[in-house]
């Protein structure tokens, strides 16, 4: 009989005091140790037996991981140990990055968001990660500590495939920095789950737009799509169309069609590939329209 409530397999909990210690430990135990923050991805995978480790390395005590601060020049920095609810209720986030609050609030349930983190969502590298697209469209940069010290990794060169990133043995992501958004930015996150709340996304669409005198259309749009390709990605061709052509109902519909053509979804329990493609078109059109209605007010 299948045990419906397996406990966590045998493992050792390690809580390093410094970044150097953490990176060293992770590098020395490459393949048998994993960093974790909220554990909401790790624990499920450990219980299911898809993840096997000897050591779980708690990063929540490390320097910089509890930071949540906004600087009018540098932007927003979110530490790897900051739970999503803290992010979504932060007044600077609500004032300057309301689309990020929206994406964070779309994840799971209130109590899970007291543990789940944005950095964990990103490092997990699931195609369905709900906050990844918005962080990409906001040009997020990860602050990382490894065995060679500190470095930065832009989010748009972070993902290699489902569950795979450019992180090396010994790397700990300390935080993510989101630059100050362009003036007049409007952004939304549209998520389609099997129910309206509390489920992984079948399709997730993050769209933001802002006035830009350098674009022929007078605007720049960023469109990032989740759950419809091996990794969340930006629909660059659709973005280009919206910067080149005057924005009308027709160009918005065209951009949504182009976004649909750019995706390579799979069939799974949550939806068929065909359904996902159609929903990318519909949600992208809805999201761009919502952003445009506010921009053109």
């Amino acid at each position: 009989m299948i045990n419906p409530h397996p406990g966590l397999p045998e493992l050792e909990y390690v809580k390093p005091a410094t970044l150097v210690e953490a990176s060293q430990f992770l590098a020395e135990h490459n393949g048998t140790a994993k960093p974790f923050s909220g554990g909401t991805d790790c624990f499920v995978r450990l219980r299911d037996g898809v993840l096997k480790v000897d050591y779980l390395v708690d990063i929540k005590g490390l320097d910089g991981t509890k930071e949540l601060s906004f600087d009018p020049k540098k932007g927003l920095t979110i530490g790897a140990a900051v739970p999503m609810n803290k992010v979504a209720t932060n007044k600077d986030v609500i004032a300057h990055y309301p689309n990020l609050a929206m994406a964070a609030n779309s994840v799971a349930s209130y109590q899970l968001r007291n543990r789940a983190t944005i950095v964990g969502n990103i490092c997990n590298a699931s195609p369905a990660g709900d906050t990844i697209g918005t962080c990409m469209a906001l040009d997020g940069v990860l602050n990382v500590h490894g065995t060679d010290g500190f470095r930065q990794i832009p989010l748009n060169s972070f993902f290699l495939g489902p569950g795979r990133t450019v992180l090396k043995p010994g790397d700990v992501v300390i935080s993510i920095t989101l630059p100050v958004p362009p003036a007049g930015m409007v952004g939304v996150y549209k998520k389609l789950g099997r129910n309206t709340i509390g489920d992984l996304s079948i399709v997730g669409v993050a769209v933001l737009g802002y006035p830009n005198s350098k674009s022929p259309s007078g605007y720049t749009f960023r469109i990032a799509l989740a759950s419809v390709a091996p990794v969340p990605f930006e629909a660059l061709k659709a973005e280009a169309l919206l910067s080149e052509k005057k924005i009308t109902e027709e160009t918005i519909a065209q951009a949504a069609d182009i976004a649909m053509e750019s995706v390579t979804p799979i069939d799974d329990v949550r939806g068929s590939a065909r359904y996902r493609k159609l929903m990318v078109r519909n949600l992208t059109r809805e999201a761009i329209t919502e952003v445009w209605n506010q921009l053109s007010k």
Binding site: L8, Y13, G38, G39, T40, F43, L56, N85, Y110, Q111, L112, N114, R115
Partner: peptide, 10 residues
């Protein structure tokens, strides 16, 4: 002071 899923906390 904050609700959490105790099955997801060590």
């Amino acid at each position: 002071g904050e609700p959490v899923n105790s099955c997801m906390v060590l």
